[in-house]
Design a binder for these strands. Structure first.
Lengths: 246, 246
DNA sequence: CATGTCCGATTGTTAGGACATACTCTGATT
DNA sequence: AATCAGAGTATGTCCTAACAATCGGACATG
């Protein structure tokens, strides 16, 4: 039980202490040093061992509980959750879900335009009549196999976008380089069957299943930066996420 | 700017103070008292007005930031996010997503059995060979229209389940009554086309689009309580969620 | 006029202490 | 022997108190 997790805390680092603890415990869990189901020492002792205050220790554990790695129970203690659950850990995030998947995706830009926003886009991005947006469609392939057909609308008052940029890196990478700090996004996931336009591009048959995703992303200043409508091949893509009960 | 949000804090209530603040601000936002985009007063003044300490106030605002209602910026202040984003607020939770939708859903139990778990179920629920589970399929209708076809496997060492119970209330209601405190769930959302078994039950055509969802739920003791495989009519159901950047 | 610098405002981080509440186990009582 | 009460332990909530980091605008300087 008394797992001596010898974390090293660097007080001169710019990384907050509680976050160093989070990283340390995460690492200990992933390397197997902390076994699934094992109990951690109590907050106070742990804090004392690392020369931290209890609030700092608690804040670190709070984050780990929230992300689903730990489970706390009053009067009992804190446990590492069973490994069976932990595999699909990260919830589908604001980042393109593909870039961290080993095989590098390639992107083909099918259409690109800088146009006046239509009413639906104006509402989604919350911009005034007459404002212009970038509108483009892309085809994303992984390992030569088409995976997703993506249509996006982006405000043009944030950063310059062109075809070459889109070919070189993901949309979110471009926007972040342009100084955008994403805060939240709403998305809706559903299903449809491939039509005659989508099927040949995705190299599948009309009538096959597609996963659809609509998303609008907002930055830290409250601007609706981007909205998009994506479809994925149903036989090779699904959204995986971990829900944490609050 | 100086929004006088006259929240009432009841110190004798068993509800934690920070949670009372969360509820109060949520209510103020939903009733329009706090307008989208408006700035809140700073943490210290707000805390002083309510006779709370700053950490308590901060904890409340932390939750609201995490749920996507507020946005904070160091050196600047705290804002209510734009209303455009807030509509599809709650992320699809552990609860049945339908019960809070106005029209009451009805549930038909198609099959019900108490059987020995097959290998796939044993792995999903992390139970030993020879253990038994409840296995059942249900058809859920809203307003007389079939919406979802659900197949579930549930551990039998938690609470008794039978057909009548399932007809009367949702699975999660039954399990919570049985003393289960859900902590987290992993789910995977995808797409498929309706086959000859599913189509007539869902009153749609074979070949139409279906949203698929696989989920495994875990309680606060780390047990994998339940796993399920659901399909929804693609033309009338989609998963809506808000992602918050951490 | 353009640019760099300082300063106030506001959130971010950390500390240390106190008491409340829930769970578990043990010992006492019936 | 079974049941109940209480002690011990661990997390949950709340407080006071600092100092750090960052942002934005005001101000000074070239």
């Amino acid at each position: 039980m008394a797992n001596q997790l010898h974390l090293s805390i660097d007080r001169s680092s710019p990384v907050p202490l509680y976050h160093q603890v989070v990283q340390g415990i995460e690492a200990a869990i992933h390397t197997g040093l902390l076994e699934p189901g094992s109990r951690l020492e109590n907050e106070i002792d742990l804090a004392a061992q690392l020369n931290l205050s209890r609030p700092t220790m608690r804040k670190a554990m709070d984050e780990l509980v929230r992300s689903g790695l730990l489970v706390r129970k009053r009067g009992v203690g804190t446990q590492v959750v069973s490994s069976q659950v932990r595999r699909p850990l990260e919830l589908s995030s604001l980042y393109d879900d593909l870039t961290n998947n080993g095989s590098k995706p390639t992107t083909e830009v099918l259409t690109f335009a800088h146009i006046e926003a239509d009413p639906a886009t104006r509402e989604a991005l919350h911009i005034a009549a007459g404002a212009k947006v970038y509108h483009f469609t892309r085809l994303r392939k992984v390992g030569g196999k088409p995976l997703a057909l993506m249509e996006n609308w982006v405000r043009d008052d944030i950063t310059h976008i062109d075809e070459d940029l889109l070919k070189a890196q993901g949309l979110y990478g471009i926007l972040r380089s342009g100084g955008v700090n994403f805060r939240l996004a709403t998305q809706r996931i559903g299903a449809m069957v491939a039509n005659d336009y989508q099927a040949p591009l995705l190299e599948t048959e009309p009538g096959s299943a597609l996963v659809t995703m609509e998303r609008t992303a907002v930055d830290d200043t409250g601007r609706n930066v981007e909205t998009g409508h994506h479809v994925y091949r149903g036989d090779s893509y699904s959204f995986e996420m971990t829900l944490v009960q609050r």
